[in-house]
């Protein structure tokens, strides 16, 4: 189990999940994650040549809906759940980028 530990960069993984871990937490997660990886390693040794691939654990497809318009929440309800509000209409968040760019995705 321990031979895998140097492959896992817990700090990097924690960073991706926006988690701030102390040293003892890092070593604990190192053990846990390595256990998960070892388990996955074992699974990958199973002979699956007769099994067709799937994208989901449940074998159901096409759970879809018709394009019907429904009713949205009231704005006051939406903004009640926000940590902070701008002009009673926008959700206020800290500045993320300082450029004039508008969106991320």
């Amino acid at each position: 189990m321990d031979e895998k530990s140097q492959d896992v960069d817990i700090k990097h993984i924690a960073g991706l999940a926006r988690l701030n871990l102390n040293d003892s937490e890092i070593s604990r997660y190192e053990t846990d994650i390595n256990a998960v990886l070892t388990h996955a390693e074992q699974l990958s040794k199973v002979d699956l040549s007769d099994v067709s691939p799937t994208a989901h654990a449940v074998s159901i497809t096409n759970v879809i809906r018709n394009d019907d318009e429904g009713v949205s929440m009231s704005r006051s309800n939406v903004l009640d759940n926000a940590p902070d509000v701008l002009d009673d209409e926008l959700i206020k968040v800290p500045v993320v980028i300082s450029s004039n760019s508008e969106d991320s995705a």
Partner: peptide, 17 residues
């Protein structure tokens, strides 16, 4: 899915979902 629209101000950003 598209994401919300952000408007950036000097001190903060405002989000419209």
């Amino acid at each position: 899915e598209d994401v919300a629209k952000s408007t950036h101000f000097r001190q903060c950003s405002g989000i419209d979902f």
